[in-house]
Amino acid sequence: MSQIKTLNPALIGIATQTTYLPTHSRPEDNQYTFAYTVTISNAGDVSVQLLSRFWQITDADGDVQEVRGEGVVGEQPIIRPGRYFRYTSGATLPTPVGYMNGEYTMILHDDDRPLDLKDQLAFEVQIPAFTLHTPTSLN
């Protein structure tokens, strides 16, 4: 008899850290580039796999860019219980201040058998908003 595994999406933690990249930015051309590092942790007792991402990137003028895609940084990582996955990516804004938020689409991953995506129920994990800003823009 197979056991049905479930996971509360609240057991997936999201932590972010941002850095302004002045050497990749051109303020005179309204291009401000930022790196962001995301740590996705699994406090549950079931492995999960990140399938896709959705970002809303909002600049100081209120303009929104939407980004959708498979995985993150070319990967669809499996995050086992008690473990985490960390990656760094980047965004360029036309203003020195903005923020990002979004969601990851994940599935439960059974380490004991091959993954069959059609049999999986996907769930969303919200990515809380975080600020992108140059060092002096919020003073």
Score class of each variant (00 low, 15 high):
Ala60Ile: 12
Asn42Gln: 05
Asp119Asn: 07
Thr95His: 12
Gly62Leu: 10
Leu50Cys: 01
Leu121Asn: 01
Pro128Met: 04
Gln65Phe: 09
Ile107Gln: 07
Pro114Asp: 11
Gln56Asp: 05
Asp45Phe: 01
Val67Pro: 03
Val97Thr: 14
Val38Ile: 13
Thr39Ser: 15
Gln56Tyr: 06
Ala91Met: 15
Gly98Ala: 08
Thr58Met: 09
Met106Ile: 07
Pro114Val: 13
Gly74Met: 11
Ala43Trp: 09
Leu132Tyr: 04
Ala91Pro: 12
Arg113Pro: 02
Val73Lys: 03
Arg83Val: 00
Ser41Ile: 07
Thr58Lys: 13
Thr37Ile: 04
Gly82Val: 15
Phe54Arg: 06
Phe85Val: 00
Pro96Asn: 09
Leu51Cys: 01
Arg68Gly: 04
Asp111Val: 11
Arg86Val: 08
Val46Gln: 14
Asp119Gln: 06
Gly69Ile: 07
Gly62Val: 14
Gly71Cys: 03
Ala91Glu: 15
Phe123Ile: 06
Glu75Pro: 03
Gly102Gln: 10
Gly71His: 01
Val72Glu: 11
Leu121Gln: 09
Asp110Tyr: 05
Ile78Tyr: 08
Pro94Cys: 10
Ile40Glu: 10
Gln49Val: 08
Trp55Lys: 02
Val48Cys: 08
Gly62Ile: 12
Trp55Gln: 01
Val38Met: 04
Gln56Leu: 08
Leu115Thr: 07
Asn101Phe: 10
Val73Gln: 03
Gln56Trp: 03
Asp61His: 12
Leu115Lys: 03
Arg80Tyr: 11
Phe34Gln: 15
Leu132Gln: 05
Met100Cys: 14
Val72Gly: 07
Ala35Thr: 14
Val46Ile: 08
Gly62Arg: 13
Gln76Thr: 15
Arg68Ala: 01
Tyr99Ala: 08
Glu75Cys: 03
Val72Trp: 03
Lys118Thr: 11
Thr39Leu: 13
Ile40Lys: 07
Ile79Pro: 12
Asp61Val: 09
Glu70Ala: 15
Ile57Arg: 03
Phe130Pro: 07
Asp61Arg: 13
Thr88Gln: 14
Tyr87Cys: 12
Ile57Thr: 04
Gly71Met: 03
Asp119Gly: 03
Thr58Pro: 02
Gln76Asp: 06
Arg83Gly: 00
Pro94Glu: 06
Ile78Lys: 15
Gly71Ile: 01
Thr39Cys: 13
Leu50Val: 10
Phe85Gln: 00
Leu121Pro: 01
Met100Asp: 07
Tyr36Ile: 14
Lys118Phe: 13
Leu50Ala: 05
Gln49Ala: 14
Tyr99Pro: 10
Leu117Thr: 09
Pro96Glu: 12
Trp55Cys: 05
Gly71Ala: 04
Arg83Met: 05
Glu124Thr: 13
Arg68Pro: 01
Pro77His: 10
Arg86Ser: 13
Ser52Trp: 00
Leu132Lys: 05
Val48Lys: 05
Asp119Phe: 04
Gln126Val: 02
Pro114Phe: 15
Phe85Leu: 00
His109Pro: 09
Asp110Lys: 02
Ile107His: 06
Gly102Phe: 12
Tyr84Met: 07
Ser47Asn: 04
